[in-house]
């Protein structure tokens, strides 16, 4: 192979590529973790991809209205915001919440498949308005409950309810 200068050129080329990549990543690394333009762009891209994925998951529009989905529709609730609010209020300390990595508490029931339940905490019907009100002040409806009043605002409660109703309506 002595006659082929191509091979060392390839070697040098790959080495140069590695160096360039290393330099770029190093520059990126200098960004403050909480003020990171590349990271923010990536996060935004991820959010858009989420939108596309959920649109794709919905499938083609059906001829008849989806009564189940309409029953669980929370007016003004945004599931994506609700997911973040769950982290914010510390729901995960007591509950397992699918989709929230840090939520794996075993104090209260898992919230997986919440959309399929008939009652909330055995005292309220499982309907959007009731769930929102429950989240805002559980002891009001169930005096002996261990779940505290977390000071949830109405908007946040609606968001969280919207997220919780994404958990297991299909099964």
């Amino acid at each position: 192979m002595q006659g082929k200068p191509v091979v060392p050129l390839t070697l040098a080329g790959v080495a140069a590529l590695v160096l360039v990549a290393i330099t770029l990543v190093s520059v990126w690394s200098l960004a403050h973790p909480q003020r990171d333009p590349v990271g923010n762009a990536l996060a935004a891209m991820g959010a858009r991809l989420d939108g596309v994925r959920s649109w794709y998951a919905q499938g083609p529009v059906e001829a008849s209205p989806d009564w189940q989905a309409m029953r669980l529709n929370v007016p003004g609730g945004d599931a994506a915001r609700g997911r973040l609010a769950m982290v914010e209020y510390g729901c995960g300390a007591c509950h397992v919440i699918p989709g929230v990595a840090s939520a794996r508490g075993t104090v209260g029931p898992s919230l997986d498949g919440l959309a399929r339940r008939a009652y909330i905490a055995g005292v309220l019907t499982n309907a959007p308005g009731d769930l929102t009100r429950w989240l805002m002040n559980p002891p009001l409806f169930s005096p002996e409950t261990a779940m505290p009043n977390l000071g949830v605002t109405e908007a946040d409660a609606a968001d969280m309810a919207a997220y919780l109703y994404t958990l297991g309506p299909d099964a």
Binding site: V25, S29, P33, Q34, D36, G39, A101, S102
Partner: peptide, 19 residues
């Protein structure tokens, strides 16, 4: 880079959003 961004060794988990 991860190290200079403050990640210690031998941790099985890390909170999201620290960088």
């Amino acid at each position: 880079i991860t190290g200079l961004r403050g990640m210690p060794r031998r941790i099985s988990t890390y909170p999201a959003g620290i960088g």
